[in-house]
């Protein structure tokens, strides 16, 4: 496959996982803005979906024991193909099909050597920063509700 030279081989599993995780938490406005600023937008072929279904979420007995089925969540997924032959997949909680389609496109673009920097700097970096800021805020708000115990001094007798 000729376009293969254009494609970063997927040896970096951690990197791909990170990208997929960030794309799952992307907001529609973030994806749309990145798509709108993308130079030479590719022709995208839909391979599967976008379609909505369920994932059974598991917990563990006692927190760390044997798995049990906690309940389901809605998940929307999409698979697309770029003209280069690179396939992109997206899975995210919720029912937003337009979001899943765009996330799949960016998953594919991230795998292309020429586009990865754009995806990182325009989309993944900002999403990562947003999530970190949100988590920091939650952590700080929670920390403010931490109880500081003090001991009442009792008379010695």
């Amino acid at each position: 496959m000729d376009p293969a030279e254009e494609i970063e081989p997927i040896v970096d599993l951690q990197g791909r996982r990170r990208a997929a995780g960030l794309l799952a938490q992307a907001r529609m406005d973030e994806l749309q803005a990145a798509w709108d600023t993308l130079p030479d937008r590719p022709e995208v072929k839909a391979v599967r979906g976008p379609e909505t279904g369920l994932v059974m979420i598991r917990g563990r007995i006692g927190g760390g024991g044997a798995p049990f089925n906690l309940g389901e969540a809605t998940v929307t997924r999409a698979t697309i193909l770029l003209p280069s032959g690179v396939a992109g997949h997206a899975h995210a909680l919720g029912t937003d099909k337009a979001k899943a389609r765009l996330a799949a496109i960016f998953d594919a673009l991230w795998q292309e050597r020429a586009k990865r920097d754009f995806v990182e700097s325009t989309l993944l970096g900002p999403i990562e920063a947003r999530i970190a800021a949100e988590d920091k805020r939650t952590a700080e708000e929670t920390a403010a509700t931490r109880v500081d115990f003090f001991t009442m001094v009792r008379g010695e007798d």
Binding site: L54, E72, D135
Partner: peptide, 30 residues
Amino acid sequence: RTTLPRFGTSVPVDTAGMTVERRVSATYKD
């Protein structure tokens, strides 16, 4: 929910790694 297909089953969630918003214990003070 009965109208949707099931895509799969999740990896069990890790509650020890939770982004905690509240946690109280009635057995240990500190």
